[in-house]
């Protein structure tokens, strides 16, 4: 009896360092977000004065923010661009991943290997020719110019190719016997079956698109800015309104934090899924 208790006690004691270390890491991880949320309700003076409790200045911060910035338009731009990228990317990359895996051939393996090399190309290395390309096509400042380069990524194709390995071949053959066309099989059977993969891919793609900064900053005109660009401009003035700044940051973070909390498992599977 005694040995049982001490065994249990031992096991609990052994985990104490885990709890301590993980608690510290959790607090450090969450604190800046807490600070951001609280500061959105405080005046600039209070933010700098390190007030760590919610205040009553939220409405005032909002009024100042929208008085000096076209927040609505930036929200709309961010939202439309992120949704368009997500939908198009999922369509284009999933059918490609499906094509690579289900209609597997040597030639396709070679193409896939070449496409994977594109993962190593830094965006910086392609930025100037892309800028020239879209400018020459009179698409400087257009949302399309933000959307098009983000549609097809080797990572997403790889994710769908790896997941397609779990797609049962018996189902494929049965559908063919039922007279479904190849595209019909993809749309009516593959897509509903692979919902989990689509959820993972959508989470990552939306969050990346929503948070993307460098390319939109390069290709969009000042009037058509997205939320991250608007935020980056808030410190450009002589005096920064820290309350308003934190409110804008909170606004930009809310959608992705909600998506993250709801679809965390999908997100984690998505980022690691392509390499399993």
């Amino acid at each position: 009896m005694i040995s049982v208790i001490s065994d249990k006690a031992k096991r609990i004691w052994r985990l104490v360092p885990n709890y301590v270390f993980l608690s510290i890491a959790s607090v450090v991880s969450i604190f800046p977000l807490y600070f951001m949320a609280v500061s959105a309700t405080n005046t600039s003076q209070e933010v700098l004065g390190s007030k760590l409790l919610p205040g009553g200045n939220l409405a005032e911060n909002w009024r100042n923010l929208v008085a000096n910035n076209d927040v609505g338009r930036a929200l709309l731009a961010s939202f439309v661009i992120a949704v368009a990228i997500t939908v198009l990317s999922l369509l284009v990359c999933s059918i490609a991943g499906y094509g690579f895996e289900i209609y597997h051939s040597k030639g396709k393996d070679v193409v896939m290997a070449i496409l994977l090399l594109a993962m190593m190309i830094p965006f910086a290395a392609t930025m100037i020719p892309l800028f020239q390309l879209f400018r020459n096509m009179h698409m400087y400042g257009s949302w399309f110019a933000v959307i098009i380069p983000a549609i097809s990524t080797p990572f997403m194709i790889l994710l769908f190719r790896q997941s397609s390995r779990n797609f049962p071949h018996e189902v494929l053959e049965a559908a063919r016997l039922d007279g479904l066309r190849e595209l019909g099989i993809f749309v009516r059977i593959y897509m509903p079956t692979m919902r989990a993969t689509y959820a993972a891919a959508a989470t990552i793609t939306f969050m990346n698109a929503w948070n993307n900064f460098m390319w939109p900053r390069v290709i969009l005109k000042p009037g058509t800015q997205t939320l991250p660009i608007l935020i980056s401009n808030l410190t450009a003035g002589y005096v920064t309104d820290y309350g308003g700044l934190m409110l804008a940051v909170l606004l930009a973070s809310l959608p992705t934090v909600v998506i993250f909390l709801v679809l965390q498992r999908s997100f984690a599977e998505g980022i690691t899924g392509a390499i399993k």
């Binding site: 991880s29 800046p32 951001m36 948070n211 991250p228 980056s232 700044l245 934190m246 940051v249």
Partner: peptide, 15 residues
Amino acid sequence: IFLPCAISLVSYSMV
């Protein structure tokens, strides 16, 4: 510990 990944780079830079 995973949560910071939900925030954009520009946003956390501002925080």
